[in-house]
Design a binder for these strands. Structure first.
Lengths: 344, 344
DNA sequence: TTGAAAGCGCTAACAC
DNA sequence: GTGTTAGCGCTTTCAA
């Protein structure tokens, strides 16, 4: 048996004995239709398992496709996965589907992805922009009213909506927490590239907290890395200093994994405040104090922003700042592991 | 200034002074073209920033769209995020783009998503099937040669390719590890619904290990939950038993978070083997032994399977089993926390 | 090597 | 309330 091809509008029309346009009217709920045709059409549609082809719709109508393009650095990173889930949950109810790609923080791949999404006529574009990415090709689309939202990091020189975390404030509070617990030599492990917005902001927050406490900034206490392994090495270097830090701020979830692994190996009693929450932080010894981001809310805000634009909002581009939250779990305590070695 | 609409093939053709078909031939690299036209066309394409509209291509050619539809339960779950990243990395090089949706393990949402992806004429469909989902509407598409791959769990009664973890074997090895370390009362925390393939397989592996060791299966030692909080409560119940378990197998990453949190609160010296790796497992006290899954490989295998089918492979459906790996990190040791209370 | 015409699945614009 | 025609952006088919 030859399997029949997917039914078309014309097939349904023929089946019912009406014109294609009538079926279209029934399915799209525009234009008037008599109750009886409606019923007969819907019956045939159900029987044939017909569905309108959204691509053909979008081509003919000249409007955008019912998709939202999303470019993130890495799908496997739970932070971005949560962002994506927040976006999806928000736009889903409006009939929009997510089209996604990972840039790997490579500006070229990012541009390829945005171009390909634009060629697909996405309804909106959401991008976690890579350092050095060129967004000039977005200008014309912005001018035509395409909603573009930059996520987690601002874009460069384009008047777009943006959703970011309160990076600087969060890092400042996290660092202040360590200072409040008596630490004066506090390290920072940042990710790379150094020009990355979140890296800069967080390190700025770290420095601000030091400055407020009158603690001089010591460049030697700043480590940086591309990945978990590098973060471990960076921390090892700090620990090997003449005068090593008694506490460390780790710049994101990946840095945290490397730093904690190294601390576990070294056994050094170094307090850690992590930016971005990680699972089971409260179960570590000492429990890990974190500056939790809220990636799902970031995604939801990004989705809501795009939907507002699609609904006709032409106001000036806005930047939404999703607040980070300091969760004290005890790793701010001074030399907690060392305490155990002292007599009570 | 009115922003010009996106250029079309005809625009490029007019610009160069050739027919649309010629531009099409140049861009698609089919049909013969003279070197000089080629160059002039490409110049104009670059200057106008023209890109072929893949939706129009797919409509006219009758072929599938250059997208792959992916339905997963939850984008925010790092396991599925990693699966997605493996898929994307594999299909990307073949010009395919990921279209994704979260089902929330709701069979209806899953069906809605697959239907909408099919209406979009995706090149392939990948689904983490929910319990109770109806896949009968996929039959006709399978017959027409659409690659359908079920991921993490087999589908129901359809001859499709499938990629799963070695769930039963992994759970058996994890449980055997606990037995080898002297445990005889071993609990199991499974996720819900009970009929979920991975839950059944893992629990079966757990029972198999018990049976091999001649340990009777005690239903009272099996807890189950929907989420992290529920897992904590389920474990609390086991701990409150007359004769509580000395070790526990946790059925997936979410169950592990809840179980570990509860253990942290209770302070009970219970050994844990977790199915699915979690970050910083080696930093917990005692370090968490895990049966690590390999979600990225699962995704890659799923992608490769679909690509083979698209390349014309018509052989019988295959099931790829991605091997789990027991990573011993010490939490199998008997009552390790209790040891610390004993004099050396 | 190139082009003209027709048409994919659908809807806009108009007619009746 | 319904149908007809034309045409979206592209490729197929055929002819030159």
């Amino acid at each position: 048996m030859v399997s029949p091809r997917r039914p078309t509008l014309a097939d349904v029309a023929q089946e019912v004995g009406v014109s294609a346009k009538t079926v279209s009217r029934v399915l799209n709920g525009n234009g008037p239709t008599s109750e009886s045709t409606r019923e007969r059409v819907l019956e045939a549609v159900g029987r044939l398992g017909f569905q309108l082809n959204p691509m053909a719709q979008s081509i003919r109508s000249g409007g955008p496709d019912t998709t939202v393009g999303l470019v993130i650095p890495d799908l496997a990173n739970p932070f971005f996965g949560s962002v994506a889930s927040g976006i999806e949950a928000t736009v889903r109810d409006h009939g929009l589907t997510l089209v996604m790609g990972s840039s790997g923080d490579d500006p070229e791949r990012e541009t390829d992805l945005t171009r390909s999404f634009l060629a697909r006529r996405v309804s909106a574009l959401m991008v976690v922009p890579s350092v050095g990415a060129d967004h000039s090709h977005l200008k014309r689309h912005l001018a035509q009213g395409l909603p573009v939202v930059f996520i987690d990091r601002p874009g460069h020189g384009l008047p777009t909506d943006t959703v970011v975390s309160s990076n600087r404030k969060g890092a400042r509070e996290g660092t202040a927490h360590l200072i409040a617990h008596g630490h004066r030599r506090i390290g920072f492990i940042g990710d790379l590239p150094r020009g990355l917005y979140t890296r800069r902001e967080r390190q700025a927050g770290y420095r601000a907290a030091l400055a407020e406490a009158g603690i001089p900034y010591d460049r030697a206490l700043v480590g940086e890395a591309h990945d978990e392994h590098g973060a471990a090495k960076a921390l090892a270097r700090l620990l090997a200093l003449q005068s090593p830090p008694t506490a460390v701020v780790s710049g994101n979830n990946v840095m945290t994994l490397g730093a904690m692994a190294e601390l576990g190996r070294s056994g050094e009693p170094v307090a850690v405040v992590a930016i971005d929450d990680v699972p089971m932080a409260e179960l570590l010894t000492p429990a890990l104090t974190v500056v939790a981001q809220d990636p799902v809310t970031i995604g939801r805000e990004a989705g809501a922003t795009a939907l507002r634009r699609l609904a006709g909002d032409r106001s000036r581009p806005r930047t939404v700042v999703v607040q980070n939250r300091l969760i004290q779990r005890g790793s701010g305590e001074r030399r907690s592991a060392a305490d155990q070695e002292l007599p009570a």
